[in-house]
Design a binder for these strands. Structure first.
Lengths: 336, 336
DNA sequence: ACCTAAAAATAAAACGTTTCACTTCTAAGG
DNA sequence: CCTTAGAAGTGAAACGTTTTATTTTTAGGT
């Protein structure tokens, strides 16, 4: 069945194009009697407006495009969900794509969104430097980056206090007598990794201790790779504590711990990143750094709507606070 | 900066609209020299075509809309990822929305996709009966349902052999001496739950045993609710085996098992549903039913492309096979 | 040089809406 | 019964493309 157009509705209801359009956009200034006729006609023809034609002329779509690395990373999945809930409640639609950590795919997705006149773009970027994002210059809608900061890019950034919370965490481990703390983190050049590593150094410095760089390991954001590398490293390195500094590494650590039958916290103390139900899933309960996902979503939403009202976008950089949740996976090994 | 249009490119390159358009759509029949001019102009103006105008006239968007219940359910998240990868490789874009198990939101999302002229629609439906989907009749593009069957709806369905694989699973438990098998499954009326429960009955019947209906518990698809209900039930019911018949219940079971310090398989035998890395995460390795997610995605992709070529859609119903993976979480309790 | 056929370029129509400047209708006030 | 202002309705233009029928250019053969 061919899709009905507004012209069909006009003919069927015996009214003009303009009147039907007026009805569709708020029905102010259309007679009661005619409103009924139009309603009837629409029902008969199963008419629904073509958003392509509408968007073409209004230039507004009430839709927001979101690009995240992948759904399989529960941190991003949950962030996407929260955003969809927050923004959806305002009558906006959120559509999501994955970049799979590939800047080309990310670009393709963002340009798809842009050429479909999204009202705003939200992205958890996977590129490392500003040149990767040159193509955004031709896009005339608000753009919001989440999670990762990219130097030299003048857009909105919503971040967390990676450095400070890691500093707190490592200080806690040091204060419990740990000296050989293995940190597993995403590759160099990513804002979050670099900041988290900086926090590690800060803590050691605060306590007047020297960092053994060999204990900082970089692994791509992939659970399987994390599992493999952590297993290998744990077998060949002496350490009393393990700090997994992102979600895939936390998962990978737990796989390894199970596989090698390591007893937490007796054989090894452990701190993870991104709660994601993991504290409930594992026994004993895991000490964790937890990102304020709901807060990030709410804040991003607020900024999106503020930016959409502006003519010239005034972008800001914001850092929200993570929680350091102390449970039972770290042992006090100080000699008394 | 105002976005450049094809007219600007035409002016800048000193050529006509039609020529530029020809260039954009394959550049056959445009002089080498002029191709260069156009390329230049496009680069200068940072021009990119407006897909709204283009879609309006071509009626083709090379985009597929996908609606799933939620990203937080790793089974759906992974299904979405696989689909995006499979379909993306053909030059199509996949955009995703969540329904949050709400038929109204599902409807809104599907209609959004339809009015944006998606080339096809894919949905893991959350509605229980055909009336919920009346509105689809006005949509003239191929529609593919995944995971859930809904009686009376003439669309493409890609399902799995829920009943048979559960039959196998329960037979295995019975053959290991278990008689009081607690099954936790999603609410009545959902195709997957009902089929899985049917498999439970089949197995008991095959072994000439009677089902204790009290041991079949229905819980909404929500990890927290699953956790709460399973904990309560386990404390007040005698059973030697627990069969969690979907992803949230599997997760919820593991939370409970940890919380109550139940030892698997000595205190209780356990079988879960939807592998999702869980066999690696838990010790001992869990016996599981695993859905062929990649296969579902590949098959769905094939059907999508077949359907898009047809004039009148010839829909089919397909069932793919799950695996029953035996590991170490079920104890043989037969008296020898 | 001239003719012709093929190749390239063009201009106008079409897609399905909203918007805007008009026209027509309605009802209240004199 | 006439006037008039406000409400309701109308039809054409516009949005940025592709498509088409048509015109212009190019190049090959005599």
């Amino acid at each position: 069945m061919k899709k009905a157009t507004i012209k069909d509705v006009a003919r069927e209801s015996g009214l003009s194009l303009g009147t039907v359009s007026k009805y569709l956009n708020g029905s102010r200034g259309v007679k009661q009697a005619n409103q009924i006729k139009i309603k009837q006609a629409i029902a008969n023809l199963r008419y629904s407006p073509d958003e392509y034609a509408r968007g073409l002329i209004t230039n507004k779509t009430k839709t927001i495009g979101l690009v995240i690395p992948e759904f399989n990373n529960l941190f991003y999945a949950q962030l996407a969900s929260e955003l969809e809930l927050a923004i959806g409640s305002e009558g906006y639609t959120v559509v999501v794509c994955e970049s799979f950590y590939d800047t080309e795919r990310e670009k393709k997705n963002l340009l798809w969104f842009a050429s479909h006149r999204m009202s705003a773009l939200v992205v958890v970027p996977c590129g490392k430097n500003a040149e990767n994002y040159d193509y955004l210059k031709s896009i005339d809608i608000p753009i919001i980056f989440l999670d990762q900061y990219i130097a030299g890019l003048n857009y909105e950034f919503v971040l967390v206090n990676n450095r400070e919370v890691c500093e707190t965490c490592i200080e806690y481990l040091l204060d419990n007598g740990h000296r050989d703390i293995l940190m597993v983190v995403a590759p160099k050049g990513l804002y979050t990794s670099d900041e988290r590593v900086n926090g590690y150094y800060d803590a050691y410095e605060n306590r007047g201790l020297n960092v053994n760089e060999d204990l900082i390991m970089r692994v791509e954001e992939n659970i399987d790779k994390a599992y493999y590398c952590i297993k290998k490293k744990l077998q060949e390195t002496r350490c009393t504590a393990l700090f997994a500094a992102n979600f895939p590494n936390t998962f990978g650590s737990i796989f390894t711990i199970n596989e090698l039958k390591i007893s937490i916290p007796d054989d090894l103390s452990f701190v993870g990143f991104d709660d994601m139900m993991l504290t409930k899933l594992f026994r004993p309960k895991l000490t964790m750094i937890d990102q304020p996902i709901a807060e990030i979503a709410m804040f991003a939403k607020r900024r999106i709507f503020e930016l959409m009202l502006q003519k010239n976008f005034e972008y800001r950089i914001t850092k929200l606070n993570c929680s350091f949740l102390v449970y039972d996976s770290v042992k006090d090994i100080r000699v008394k």
